[in-house]
């Protein structure tokens, strides 16, 4: 078996590395776009606009987050895989665009929760102190709350990236070319199931383990520095 693993790696390593490249690109694009969208959603969720006792923006953002968190990511991939080409036939979105779109919307929901939790974790006394000096709500947010919230948020966002690297494997359902798709192609061609799976598993593990350790190191450094 070990001989087989080495043989498969020797022959197809370029395909595995290409697959890893697509996996990383897909995750990175997803998380970056998810961060931007997630930040906007977290703003909606914390908005104070109210019509009588109803807060429309909070409600919209809340429903969005709950629906995304309450349905399987695979279902969301299927949904946009079929929906996007139907909605935007003139753009003729490719498979990978549809998958990226679905993963972005998924990531945004989780990121918005991370940002909201990070902001709310900043001690209320900080806001009170800033307001008592005469700062308005926006100044308090920009100069006092957000700089402190970033420390809570940044490590969690990196963890979201690590999670997304693993989640993108679900996109292999639609053969978009990432690492898990490479596995399916090779195992189909060689009639080998276990050996290429072990190779792919090792690659996933090395990447996520290294990144997680990196995040831990960053967290430690950030809590050590006073600022």
């Amino acid at each position: 078996m070990i001989e087989n693993i080495i043989r498969v790696w020797d022959k197809y390593w370029i395909l595995f590395i290409q697959g890893l490249g697509i996996t990383l690109m897909l995750s990175l694009v997803t998380v970056v776009a998810g961060c931007i969208l997630g930040f906007l959603i977290s703003l909606l969720r914390m908005s104070r606009l109210r019509i009588f006792h109803f807060r429309p923006l909070n409600a919209i953002a809340g429903i969005y987050v709950e629906v995304i968190r309450g349905t399987p990511i695979l279902l969301q991939l299927y949904f946009f895989y079929f929906l996007l080409p139907e909605m935007l036939p003139f753009l003729n979105p490719s498979k990978i665009v549809c998958c990226t779109f679905a993963l972005c919307l998924n990531s945004a929901a989780y990121v918005s929760e991370v940002i909201r939790a990070g902001i709310q974790a900043v001690d209320k006394g900080q806001t009170e102190a800033a307001r008592s000096l005469g700062l308005n709500q926006k100044q308090t947010m920009m100069h006092v709350v957000l700089p402190q919230a970033v420390k809570n948020i940044l490590p969690a966002l990196c963890n979201e990236f690590v999670t997304m690297i693993k989640e993108t494997s679900l996109a292999s359902t639609f053969f978009v070319g990432e690492l898990m798709t490479v596995y399916r192609t090779i195992s189909g061609a060689l009639f080998l199931t276990i050996e290429p799976l072990i190779i792919v598993g090792i690659i996933y593990f090395i990447v996520t383990f290294t990144l997680s350790k990196g995040v831990l190191f960053m967290e430690k450094k950030m809590s050590a520095s006073a600022a």
Binding site: E128, A130, R131, S132, G134, L135, V144
Partner: peptide
Amino acid sequence: INLHRQKMGMVFQHFNVFPN
């Protein structure tokens, strides 16, 4: 109220100094 708060200093039980 922000203008008037500038003229009213406040000191809290838990200090609330800005750690950043």
